[in-house]
Amino acid sequence: MAQIGNTKVLAGVKLSMMEPFADEPNKGVLIMGAELLPMASPTFEPGPPDERSIEFSRVVDRGIRSSEIINMESLFVEEGKVLGLFIDLYVLDYGGNLFDTGTLAAMSALKNTRMPKIESGELIRGEYTGNLPLGGYPLSSTFVKIGNFTMLDPEIHEESAADARLTICTCEENIVAMQKGGVGAFKKEEVLNLINVSFEKRDILMKHIR
């Protein structure tokens, strides 16, 4: 579980045997899901994923997928059989900045994901062969702009007052995902400056991954 301020996100990783996608028969499959539990906020409703939860899971997904930290070919089992890596984000309490908390939770969970034992093409539940190897840690920084001020890690009131929002996910020397949100606009130089800030703030987030 990751907690930033009052936001708590629990990430669970599960591996299951499945058919590969037709266009990538020799690669495993990464599937990200997100549940905004109604217990987490009076503004979350029960029911199928709404646009907020879709954007949340897709932004976290993009950071992890683009950084190529998981060798998807290593999830190949045999012809027509690959491992599916299911990462599910459960928002338990919502106090703003879902994206950064979700990415942190997902990376923490991936770090201690155990690889299941596979015998003659079957997955043996409860037996493991070591941890899932990771090639790095994509981590995101989210900023909001309110009037002329831009601030990192918005809490819930700052988020609702924000004109615009920008999430930047970095891994090693690369920017691996970005998502702008909100009705307001960012100037070009603002975006470039925030990219520099997000590289600086990575180290703080990194310390929390155990």
Binding site: R62, R65, S66, L166, I175, V176, A177, M178, Q179, K180, A185, F186, K187, K188, V191
Partner: peptide, 8 residues
């Protein structure tokens, strides 16, 4: 000004 931005 930038009003839509995504990147992967």
């Amino acid at each position: 000004e930038i009003i839509l931005l995504q990147m992967d």
